[in-house]
Simulated assay, not measured.
Amino acid sequence: MKLLRASVVAALPALTALPQGAAPQARAAALIFTVDPTQSDVQWALGSTLHAVHGTFALKTGNLQFDSSTGKASGEVVVDATSGRSGNDGRDRKMHKDVLESARFGEIIFRPDRITGKLEMQGDSALQVHGIFLLHGNEHELTVPAEAHLSGDHWSASAKFTIPFIEWGLKNPSTWLLKVDRSVSIELELKGTIPSQPAQ
């Protein structure tokens, strides 16, 4: 009995050295979603008193991380602000020079920080993505409703939302003859892959 007590006492320092809350197995790594710019698409529409103007932007890069156990997200989706096109050269020059000032602010970035809704590991999911939208050098909170689809190691997501660009401090391009809406509508289509996770 004395020998048993001595063995337990000797083992106590090793047991108390274990990290608090240590689990028998490490938690699985968060999912990583890489965006393929060549398969992704950013479209925009701006209403006016005459007609709606439609255009596009090019996606530069994207990489997202999501921990389904906590809802925390990170990473960013980066759009090339200088790539904005509406099909009218004069209108586009004015957009880049006077509104976006894309020579100074060459990127439009969304950085997610949390996602609500259940992400299905295969099939369709309806999610709410909250994060910070960086436009014209200023950060703004934004929550984007998104539809996601996972199939094997491929994924896609679509989102429709509005950006109150005038409220956010960008110049109003309206003239006395042509009045434009104070918000621009965005349609985002992302596609990419889910790299294999390292073994835990």
Rank of each mutant, 00 (worst) to 15 (best):
M1E: 05
M1H: 04
M1G: 05
M1C: 02
M1S: 07
K2W: 02
L4F: 08
L4V: 07
A6H: 00
A6I: 01
S7D: 00
S7L: 10
V8A: 00
A11G: 04
A11M: 08
A11T: 04
L12D: 00
L12Y: 00
P13M: 00
P13S: 02
P13H: 00
A14T: 08
L15K: 01
L15H: 00
L18T: 06
Q20P: 03
A23E: 14
Q25S: 12
A28I: 07
A30F: 02
I32C: 04
I32R: 09
I32M: 07
V35E: 00
V35G: 00
P37H: 08
T38E: 15
S40M: 09
A45Q: 15
A45Y: 05
A45V: 12
L46M: 12
G47A: 03
V53P: 05
T56H: 14
T61W: 04
N63M: 09
L64N: 01
Q65R: 13
D67E: 08
S69V: 10
T70D: 10
G71M: 10
K72D: 03
A73Y: 01
A73T: 03
G75L: 02
E76I: 02
V77D: 02
V79L: 10
A81S: 11
A81N: 07
S83V: 08
S86W: 10
S86G: 10
N88F: 14
N88S: 13
N88E: 15
D89R: 12
G90C: 04
R91M: 11
M95P: 04
D98I: 09
V99G: 06
L100D: 01
L100A: 07
A103Y: 08
G106K: 13
E107C: 09
I108N: 04
I108V: 15
F110H: 05
D113C: 06
R114H: 15
I115C: 05
I115H: 04
T116Y: 10
G117N: 13
L119E: 09
E120F: 13
E120P: 10
G123C: 15
G123S: 15
L127H: 07
V129A: 06
I132D: 08
F133D: 03
F133N: 01
L134D: 07
H136L: 09
H140M: 01
L142P: 02
L142N: 02
L142R: 10
V144P: 03
P145N: 08
A146T: 13
A146V: 14
E147M: 13
A148F: 11
A148N: 05
H149W: 12
L150M: 15
L150P: 04
S151K: 15
H154N: 14
W155T: 02
S158D: 12
K160M: 14
F161C: 04
P164L: 05
F165D: 01
I166F: 09
I166L: 11
E167R: 12
W168S: 03
L170P: 08
L170T: 08
K171V: 14
N172Q: 11
N172L: 10
N172I: 11
T175M: 10
T175S: 15
L177I: 13
L177K: 11
L177T: 11
L178R: 05
L178K: 06
K179C: 06
D181S: 12
V184N: 01
E187C: 10
E189K: 14
E189W: 08
L190W: 05
K191A: 15
K191S: 14
T193F: 02
S196I: 05
Q197I: 06
P198K: 02
A199W: 00
A199E: 06
